[in-house]
Simulated scan of single mutants.
Amino acid sequence: MDLIEGMLARRTTNGPFRPDPVSREHQHLLMRVAQAAPSHFNSQPWRFVLIENPATIQEIARISGESMTELIDAGIFFERYRRYFRFTEREMDERRDGIHIDHLPGPLKPFTKQVFSDAGIKLMRQLGVPRKLGEDNRRLVAGSPLLLAVLLDRTEYVPEQLSGFYSVFGMGAAMENIWNAVGALNMGIQFISTPMEIPRQWQAIQTLLRVPDDLALMAVYRLGYLPDGEKRPTIDWSSRHRKRLEQFVSRDTCDVPERDA
Rank of each mutant, 00 (worst) to 15 (best):
residue 237 W to H: 05
residue 33 V to H: 03
residue 234 T to D: 05
residue 27 Q to L: 10
residue 115 V to T: 09
residue 215 L to M: 12
residue 15 G to H: 08
residue 163 S to A: 06
residue 97 D to W: 03
residue 216 A to Q: 14
residue 200 R to G: 14
residue 180 N to Q: 08
residue 210 R to V: 10
residue 43 S to V: 11
residue 54 P to G: 06
residue 76 I to G: 14
residue 177 N to G: 11
residue 10 R to K: 01
residue 85 F to M: 08
residue 241 H to G: 14
residue 149 A to R: 00
residue 79 E to K: 15
residue 139 R to T: 12
residue 257 P to Q: 02
residue 185 L to Y: 08
residue 89 E to R: 11
residue 171 M to Q: 00
residue 142 A to G: 01
residue 88 T to R: 02
residue 168 V to C: 13
residue 161 Q to N: 11
residue 244 R to A: 13
residue 12 T to D: 09
residue 60 I to T: 06
residue 102 D to W: 01
residue 167 S to E: 04
residue 156 E to N: 15
residue 113 K to D: 13
residue 59 E to Y: 05
residue 44 Q to K: 06
residue 143 G to E: 01
residue 15 G to N: 01
residue 108 L to S: 05
residue 202 W to R: 01
residue 71 L to K: 09
residue 5 E to H: 12
residue 252 D to H: 11
residue 141 V to L: 00
residue 198 I to N: 03
residue 96 R to H: 03
residue 195 P to N: 06
residue 144 S to H: 05
residue 252 D to G: 09
residue 42 N to P: 08
residue 192 I to C: 01
residue 155 T to H: 10
residue 9 A to S: 11
residue 109 K to S: 14
residue 108 L to I: 00
residue 230 E to W: 11
residue 242 R to G: 03
residue 154 R to I: 11
residue 111 F to I: 02
residue 233 P to V: 02
residue 12 T to I: 05
residue 119 A to V: 14
residue 5 E to I: 14
residue 191 F to T: 01
residue 169 F to G: 09
residue 105 P to V: 08
residue 183 G to E: 03
residue 221 Y to V: 01
residue 240 R to K: 10
residue 136 D to K: 00
residue 1 M to S: 09
residue 165 F to Y: 10
residue 24 R to K: 12
residue 95 R to T: 15
residue 146 L to G: 11
residue 96 R to V: 04
residue 112 T to P: 00
residue 165 F to L: 14
residue 183 G to D: 00
residue 107 P to C: 07
residue 107 P to T: 00
residue 10 R to E: 06
residue 86 R to D: 06
residue 161 Q to M: 08
residue 134 G to C: 01
residue 149 A to W: 00
residue 155 T to L: 13
residue 185 L to P: 06
residue 181 A to Q: 13
residue 134 G to E: 10
residue 14 N to D: 05
residue 169 F to Y: 12
residue 86 R to M: 10
residue 12 T to M: 12
residue 100 H to E: 09
residue 73 D to W: 11
residue 154 R to V: 10
residue 69 T to Y: 12
residue 235 I to L: 12
residue 113 K to I: 12
residue 35 Q to G: 14
residue 93 D to P: 07
residue 106 G to Q: 13
residue 134 G to K: 02
residue 81 Y to W: 07
residue 142 A to N: 03
residue 170 G to Q: 02
residue 102 D to Y: 05
residue 241 H to S: 15
residue 57 I to F: 04
residue 202 W to D: 08
residue 206 Q to Y: 03
residue 254 C to K: 14
